[in-house]
């Protein structure tokens, strides 16, 4: 190592970053060159003097740290408030969308009837069907109905009955058959809306309903026109 290299590498030596093998060569030169040795002593002493002058003590930063911690906590809180506000807006949009696009009452009944049928037949969730006439009459009494077997038009007989949920409301599900077709008649408390008979359809599924002051009857299934025929007949009996 020569004097020029010593001068160039001095910063690494003074900062303590010099690798060991290089340091050996560095020290060897200093031992042989009085001028470089003196220069390194001077620089080292000046560094120490600078540190002594400027590192007398660390300033008190407690208040500053507390202030920064407070600001961070505040910014975190603002962040959560922002998230909450965005969530609230999304919720309002979802509610408004539901209000605008939610299915109408007829479509909701279709969905409920289809879901109930799917659960029982496809997902094998057996329902507690009653087929004894006295048991069925007991269920019908909840709706102040008697002789529900007589609600069906000629050719149909009452097969069995059960309680189910329809559009969030309990309903009596009566099943009639003519040996080939089955028709479901749902009985539930009146939900409002127009009295009398109405019919609706979605694709090849048809629903017909009749409503008086007290109850609503909904017929589903059977051959074309059977639903309407069913509710008309039931309405005349009631």
């Amino acid at each position: 190592m020569n004097c020029k290299e010593i001068e160039e590498l001095a910063p690494l030596y003074l900062s303590g970053e010099m690798e060991e093998d290089r340091k050996v060569l560095f020290h060897t030169h200093l031992a042989e060159c009085r001028s470089c040795a003196q220069q390194m002593e001077r620089l080292s002493a000046m560094d120490a003097r600078l540190r002594k002058a400027l590192c007398a003590g660390l300033p008190e930063a407690g208040a500053l740290e507390r202030s920064v911690s407070r600001q961070i906590a505040q910014k975190r809180a603002e962040w959560w408030q922002l998230i909450a506000a965005v969530a609230a807006v999304l919720l309002i949009i979802a509610v408004l969308n539901y209000g605008i696009f939610r299915p109408g009452p007829g479509a909701r009944l279709f969905m409920e009837v289809t879901r109930d049928h799917r659960q029982e037949v496809i997902e094998h969730q057996p329902r507690r069907w009653r087929s004894g006439p006295s048991e069925i009459e007991e269920l019908a009494a909840r709706y102040q109905l008697r002789d529900v077997a007589a609600l069906a038009p000629a050719g149909y007989r009452l097969e069995h009955a059960k309680m189910c949920g329809l559009d969030g409301q309990p309903a009596l599900h009566l099943v009639y058959t003519n040996g080939v077709q089955e028709v479901s008649l749902f009985v539930r408390s009146r939900t409002g809306g127009n009295r009398g008979i109405s019919a609706t359809s979605a694709g090849d599924v048809r629903l017909a309903s009749f409503q008086n002051d007290r109850i609503q009857l909904i017929a589903a299934g059977g051959a074309s026109g059977d639903c309407l025929r069913f509710v008309r007949f039931a309405a005349s009996v009631l």
Binding site: R49, L50, K52, A53, L54, C55, A56, G57, L58, P59
Partner: peptide
């Protein structure tokens, strides 16, 4: 401001810096 230790020597080097 500079956290300089009192003493003429220290002030001198601080000024030089």
């Amino acid at each position: 401001v500079g956290a300089t230790s009192p003493g003429i020597e220290n002030v001198e080097i601080s000024q030089a810096l």
